[in-house]
Design a protein around this nucleic acid. Sequence first.
DNA 1: CTAACTTAGTTGGATATTTACACTAAGCCT
DNA 2: AGGCTTAGTGTAAATATCCAACTAAGTTAG
Lengths: 231, 231
Amino acid sequence: MTSHDNDAFKPIATVDLAIFSLSPAGLSVLLVRRANAPFSGDWALPGGWIHIDEDADLEAAARRVLKEKTGVETPYLEQLQTTGSRTRDPRGWSISIVYIALLSADDVAERQGGMAGEAEWRPIGGEGVGLSLAFDHAALLKEALGRIRSKVEYSSLPGHLLPVHFTLSELQSVYETLLGRKLDKSAFRKRMAEADFLEPVEGEMRRASNRPAQMFRLKDAQSLALFDRTL
Amino acid sequence: MTSHDNDAFKPIATVDLAIFSLSPAGLSVLLVRRANAPFSGDWALPGGWIHIDEDADLEAAARRVLKEKTGVETPYLEQLQTTGSRTRDPRGWSISIVYIALLSADDVAERQGGMAGEAEWRPIGGEGVGLSLAFDHAALLKEALGRIRSKVEYSSLPGHLLPVHFTLSELQSVYETLLGRKLDKSAFRKRMAEADFLEPVEGEMRRASNRPAQMFRLKDAQSLALFDRTL
DNA sequence: CTAACTTAGTTGGATATTTACACTAAGCCT
DNA sequence: AGGCTTAGTGTAAATATCCAACTAAGTTAG
């Protein structure tokens, strides 16, 4: 195909985010209430237009939107997928580039209540969030959950939801929450040792009314490490 | 963020394809030579604009482009990722939604030479295709290869590159080609039996000057089946 | 001061799975 | 009939998993 510029169709494009964190109730996703039509008043994934002058690339746009909504600057961020169709927005052909962000418990604690406007953490139940969402956001959220759940099996992903320093027991507990099943303690610790994405924080110990626990941190707090086999 | 329509930035958007098939030299990718600026004369991944009137969604657009370039209607097709930045196209902000397509050897054989214009199969060497590509297509191709290589480990992906009917030995050989290492025969066959995405073609045998081999086909020629563990 | 309690972290053994490799099977060719 | 080649199976050693007990190190109660 020859590409004359006047063939170019320029669709409406947004960057939308599925932002996850851990709450007492388990995994939660950040949703916003739409102020404008279409779907005015409905819950939706936070998102925004690309700013042609500010955003150097799509990931920068995602980071900017994330910062606007949550104040967080350095989350784990990963592109999920792009949807585009004639019908997903009643105004016509549109596309949405969807990112997944994981917020550490530290980030969430810091910004307690300081979140932009109508944003709210919604816990994920057995069958997703119990709300109908604007556009195709319900399907997008489902995809995001699928991606997260599958990556838990063989990556350091759950580590990004914890505070910067955490114990192995805490980490195992997050894996168990996300997987929905118990894991064997000794097998889990062996895997973590082999996988080599944790480093002990020298001298740091979690102290309580019992034996103190060594604290660890992710070697690279930005990226995902994989291991060979399934948990 | 409130979303007034006049905030909407509409980037130039294309759908680009990394189309793979098996050639005697191993895995090959289909490249086209660009006729127009920018990057006129350079090799690039085949792609095209979204046709607002024809294409119901992004995947439909990808299928249309694929058919235009290769004549193939029912390949394995999967969205890879979307790139977008201010600099990837010298004309300004643009985005590209990239799909991976796998063509069966049957499809390639049928359309021998009948491919659109300046399209050519290029074998993938140790370090990708030995060409510099237009836009960020070199990076996109690299991502596509990474995705394919990682999926070989735990999915039926290689089956989509073979003719509709094939033997287990042929299938193992494709896995080995894509992985770049030898696999154990009995372990491979056990995995395939457990994975349950193959079905024997009754009565069909590959005959040569040796013991005949049972032929198999993919149970679902459109989609990808996964198995639990690594090969 | 010591014993009970709680969670951290390790060890061991029964059982299942993987792996490496050898063996048997079934055709064609000479 | 015997040799050759590739298909397909069997098996024993190594490895991983599962389950549970055990030791370690602190706090708290008496």
